[in-house]
Simulated assay, not measured.
Amino acid sequence: MTDAARGGALSDGPARWERAAELFADWRSGDARAIDDLVRLMTPVLWHVVRAYGLDRPLAEDVVQTTWLALVRGHEKISDFRSISGWLTTAARREAWKVVKRERRADATDDVVLEPMLPVQESAETTVTASDEARLLWKAVAALDERCRRLLRVIAFDDRPDYATLAAELDMPVGSIGPTRGRCLVKLRARLTHADGVDERGNDG
């Protein structure tokens, strides 16, 4: 990314969400360049969200493109600019889930699963994993059990997760998502601490 001042690389979390809100507000105010910066900022995030559903590269690209088209068509319905990151990730997740169900119906062997996978080729998501910290994080996520991997990769970039939708997608009771996420985060923190060479026994178990 060459325009760091407007939409350049940012670490994931509040800084990214705040920058996305600023760019969305600028675009709605008539700054045509802002939408391009918003796309550069949020596409790597959407890519991770979509790939968490096990879609191959062409299908994932279609889902991300459809998500941006949905924003262009429905942006006037978004009154709270601060919710743009959540709106985009939710739209991407729902579109990915629709594609997964469609592919399952088309495939008699029903081989499509929600198994998240780490990218093995250089692509848009390398923007998100460029830093050593990010690579360490996703390596730790990959070492977790299947349920934790699925849950964390689906909700990792959503600051306001829709638990009802997640429950249906992950085949989990709504009430168990929060506690399960908490336990998975404890496991993830322990792995990250050990990776840094610190013994955490006695703290998180």
Rank of each mutant, 00 (worst) to 15 (best):
A5V: 13
A5M: 06
R6Y: 06
R6Q: 11
G8R: 02
A9R: 10
L10P: 02
P14T: 03
P14F: 03
A15C: 03
W17R: 10
W17M: 03
E18F: 04
E18K: 13
R19D: 00
A20F: 02
A21H: 04
A21I: 04
R28T: 08
R28L: 09
D31P: 02
D37Y: 11
D37A: 11
L38E: 01
T43Y: 00
V45Q: 00
V45G: 00
Y53C: 03
G54W: 03
P58T: 09
L59P: 00
D62P: 02
V63I: 07
Q65H: 07
W68G: 00
A70H: 07
A70N: 07
V72Q: 09
R73K: 09
H75W: 08
S79N: 11
S83C: 01
S83Y: 05
I84S: 06
I84E: 02
S85V: 07
S85E: 08
G86T: 13
T89S: 04
T90R: 12
A92M: 01
R93N: 06
R94T: 03
E95R: 14
E95P: 00
V99Q: 14
R104P: 00
D107S: 11
T109D: 09
D111L: 12
D111F: 10
V112Q: 06
E115G: 12
E115C: 07
M117V: 15
P119Y: 05
P119T: 13
V120A: 13
Q121L: 13
E122M: 13
T129D: 13
T129N: 06
A130V: 06
A130W: 12
S131C: 04
K139A: 15
K139Q: 15
A143W: 05
D145N: 15
E146V: 15
L152A: 11
R153Q: 13
R153W: 12
I155W: 06
I155Y: 06
R160H: 13
P161N: 06
A168I: 04
L170F: 07
D171G: 07
P173Q: 02
G175C: 05
G182N: 09
R183T: 12
K187R: 15
R189E: 12
L192A: 06
T193G: 01
G197N: 05
V198L: 12
D199V: 12
D199S: 10
E200I: 14
E200S: 15
G202E: 09
N203R: 14
D204T: 14
D204H: 15
D204A: 14
D204R: 15
G205V: 14
